[in-house]
Write a protein that binds this DNA or RNA. Structure first.
Length: 232
DNA sequence: TCATTAAATTGTT
DNA sequence: AACAATTTAATGA
């Protein structure tokens, strides 16, 4: 398997790739493959072997689940610059969730063997992984706290702001190609609420909503909107 | 290039 | 949850 120049550059400039030695980087680059998925296509299914650690070179994917009743629930959205799947690769367990592309996306596939080799070889990689797991933990703890103490509208704003976590997703652009329905799946709320919230945010000049996409105009204002009245 | 149609997405109750 | 309105993409003249 050979990856193209852009994927190699993506790895080299990633938070963990920067810490590798030249030889380590070269080995990872040569062992990493690339996958392009169209919107709606599944990257990996629940129950499959965890053969890769994934990086989002470009696009947007979601980690989701379908309930027994057939309802879709999303856990997280992962935009460009994000890495995911390390949990199951670390434990060598079957994939616990589906990963689906929300728009055409290009992924970097680091084989599990390469991942484990890095784990046993590179100190900077281990440091990155601790930071990554810590950031992921914080993401869910903060979301839970926020979900319990905030209004539905602020919760939606918070879930949008999550996609702009600079540590987890260094490459996120201000334009987000995502439908209101998918935002609703991510936030675990109704589409109507998402619709209303987007109108509020648009009135406040925080973002621009258009057919199939959002443009964030002021990420600070989005975060501020999400945490209004947090002191209680 | 333009008109027609289907599909996706949004707006509203 | 349902329905109407709007936008986009695809098709063919």
């Amino acid at each position: 398997m050979m990856s193209c120049a852009q994927t190699k550059e993506f790895i080299a400039s990633s938070l963990w790739g920067r810490g590798l030695t030249g030889e380590e980087l070269q080995r990872v680059q040569s062992e990493t493959s690339e996958l392009t998925v169209q919107a709606g296509q599944t990257v990996c299914h629940r129950g499959m072997l965890s053969e890769y650690w994934y990086g989002v070179v470009d696009g947007l994917v979601k980690v989701s689940n379908v309930t027994r009743a057939g309802r879709t629930t999303s856990l997280i959205g992962i935009p460009a610059g994000g890495w995911f799947g390390e949990g199951s690769v670390l434990k060598n367990e079957l994939r616990p969730y589906d990963v689906v592309a929300l728009r055409t996306s290009r992924l970097a596939l680091v084989p599990a063997t390469t991942f484990h080799w890095l784990l046993g070889t590179s100190f900077p990689f281990n440091r990155f992984l601790i930071d990554q797991l810590n950031a992921r933990l914080a993401q869910f703890v903060i979301r839970l706290e926020h979900f319990r103490s905030s209004t539905p509208e602020r919760h939606v704003a918070h879930c949008l702001a999550e996609l702009f976590n600079t540590q987890l997703y260094p490459g996120t652009a201000t334009r987000l190609q995502i439908s209101q329905e998918e935002v609703a799946f991510l936030a675990g709320v109704s589409r109507q609420l998402v619709c209303r919230t987007l109108h509020r945010l648009e009135e406040a000049g925080v973002l621009q909503s258009s057919y199939g996409s959002l443009r964030i105009l002021d990420i600070q204002a989005l975060r501020a909107f999400a945490s209004e009245g947090d002191s209680d």
